[in-house]
Write a protein that binds this DNA or RNA. Structure first.
Lengths: 172, 172
DNA sequence: TAATATAGTTGTTAGTAGCAACGATAGGGG
DNA sequence: CCCCTATCGTTGCTACTAACAACTATATTA
């Protein structure tokens, strides 16, 4: 059931797998998934891994920017960074443009770790969707995006619900 | 893109929406999604909501059984129940068959709350997949199941990885 | 009855989360 | 130029989630 013809030699499979990974990541990030204190073999939690990803992909960035990307309070982001610094996956640099600010950058170890995790997960995803037709893959990814969007609204992220408290008729 | 013909009057839409909800719930449960201390308008966290669901759907059940359903340690489950009892959504009953054990049951308030959340989320899901073809809905749900399965393996839930520690060649 | 096993709770540690308060720096107006 | 305000990040506080270990109480077995 739901098994279409095998398209193992489909060049868009990589893209689909990557988009799916991205969508799931976003879903998970919004849902603020609590770890089991490490992702199996890797000594980082899911939140830490998400933070590492943002830091690597968005270059050196400020704490506030990181917090926004992760939908976290800056205090929480600061403490996540504390842990990642302690584990030597990121470093705090002084921002030359603003001495109040810091720039967070991944260390070599951090990049190495993330590459390992990323590669492995994308590979896993690829296997998972290999037997789906391309349009189904796209649709499933789109669905995950929608789920993330809906959840973010429900959780009051970036909505009037979170900024104005107890003002409207029953929150959302 | 990925938009098929409108099948608003599709009787399987309800089923699909429900299955999707189930799959997402499982995904989220495995991923141990951390709350934002409440699901928007409802005063329960996601973990608490999952616990409530299991308690309602599996009837009065013991702590150990609940913990297994949620892939939690019994101590964690015990504390989750503490919170739900304090909020008056569940009660601890003595198990007549074993005085060591307890039976956890939902209160009227708990059932009412869960029904409200469940109805709302299923409705949201329905809207979300309304423009997908039925086979795509099935495939997407299947995909979520696979994601949950893969994640559970990765997290070491119910695998040799978690029971035997540091025995194999590199964990998983 | 004694030894062992099981059910649930509590102690402890740690990560995640948010709000509030704080110190430090930046920028604007008098 | 200095004060006022805004912003940046950290720290204090509380709470939830999570696991492991130790503990109490009851049940089962030898």
């Amino acid at each position: 059931m739901a098994q279409h013809s095998k398209n193992a030699n489909d060049p868009s499979l990589d893209t689909h797998a990557h988009e799916l990974y991205e969508a799931l990541n976003q879903l998970v990030r919004i849902y603020q998934f609590r770890d089991r204190d490490r992702i199996c073999c890797y000594d980082v939690s899911v939140t830490q891994c998400s933070a590492l990803e943002v830091i690597i992909e968005k270059g050196p960035l400020r704490l506030q920017a990181l917090a926004e990307q992760l939908f976290l309070d800056k205090s929480t982001a600061s403490r996540v960074i504390d842990t990642l610094v302690r584990k030597d996956y990121v470093t705090r640099l002084k921002d030359p443009e603003d001495s109040r600010a810091i720039l967070i950058e991944a260390t070599t170890a951090g990049r190495k770790l993330f590459t390992r995790i990323h590669t492995e997960l994308v590979e896993e995803q690829k296997e998972m969707i290999a037997d789906f037709a391309p349009d189904v893959r796209v649709a499933a990814t789109e669905l995950l995006h929608r789920l993330a969007g809906a959840a973010s609204q429900r959780m009051g992220v970036n909505t009037s619900c979170s900024t104005e408290k107890s003002s409207g008729p029953g929150c959302c």
